[in-house]
Computed example of a mutant assay.
Amino acid sequence: MKTAEEPARRLEQTLERLRKELAEMQIQDQKLLLTLRHLHSVLEELRSESAHWEDAMSSRGTSPIRARAGSEGRGQQPLAFRRLAQLLHGADGRRSSLP
């Protein structure tokens, strides 16, 4: 026999589960926001380095293609490029909660 309290108990359990899921989603949103802000700062740094590189190459009269090939041949990437590559490949040590 079902009592009148049983539906209320199930409703309370459902609400508690939803509160817990909402709290987890808020934490995930905060982490995503921090990642987005970090990516934005890395992209700004890349833009700055790119503008500096283009200005330096145009002032020297060096072909950007030849200059770029020379830097790639030495295997040196700007720090911002390495950091962006690490972020995109998940080398920052964070696990994704997505399936």
Results as ranks from 00 to 15, higher is better:
1 M>H: 06
1 M>A: 06
1 M>K: 10
2 K>M: 02
3 T>L: 07
4 A>C: 03
5 E>P: 04
5 E>N: 11
6 E>T: 15
7 P>G: 00
7 P>N: 00
7 P>W: 00
8 A>S: 14
9 R>G: 00
11 L>I: 11
12 E>T: 11
13 Q>N: 06
18 L>D: 08
20 K>A: 10
20 K>W: 03
20 K>T: 15
21 E>R: 15
22 L>A: 13
23 A>H: 15
23 A>E: 14
24 E>P: 05
25 M>L: 12
25 M>K: 14
26 Q>Y: 06
26 Q>S: 09
26 Q>W: 05
28 Q>I: 02
29 D>W: 06
29 D>P: 00
29 D>A: 07
29 D>I: 07
31 K>G: 01
31 K>L: 04
32 L>I: 12
33 L>S: 07
34 L>V: 14
35 T>E: 03
36 L>A: 13
37 R>S: 04
39 L>I: 15
40 H>D: 10
40 H>K: 11
40 H>L: 08
41 S>K: 10
41 S>Q: 09
41 S>W: 04
43 L>I: 13
45 E>D: 12
46 L>V: 07
47 R>Y: 06
48 S>Q: 11
48 S>L: 08
49 E>T: 04
52 H>I: 03
52 H>M: 07
53 W>Y: 11
54 E>G: 02
55 D>F: 07
56 A>D: 08
57 M>W: 05
57 M>C: 14
58 S>E: 12
59 S>G: 02
59 S>W: 03
60 R>V: 01
62 T>W: 05
64 P>W: 00
64 P>D: 01
66 R>C: 01
67 A>P: 08
68 R>H: 14
70 G>V: 08
70 G>D: 13
71 S>G: 00
73 G>D: 08
74 R>T: 11
74 R>H: 06
75 G>S: 04
76 Q>H: 07
76 Q>S: 05
78 P>W: 02
78 P>F: 00
81 F>G: 02
81 F>K: 13
81 F>V: 13
81 F>C: 06
81 F>N: 06
82 R>E: 05
85 A>V: 11
85 A>D: 11
87 L>G: 05
89 H>T: 15
90 G>T: 07
91 A>I: 08
91 A>Y: 07
91 A>G: 14
92 D>S: 06
93 G>Y: 00
94 R>K: 14
95 R>G: 02
96 S>Y: 01
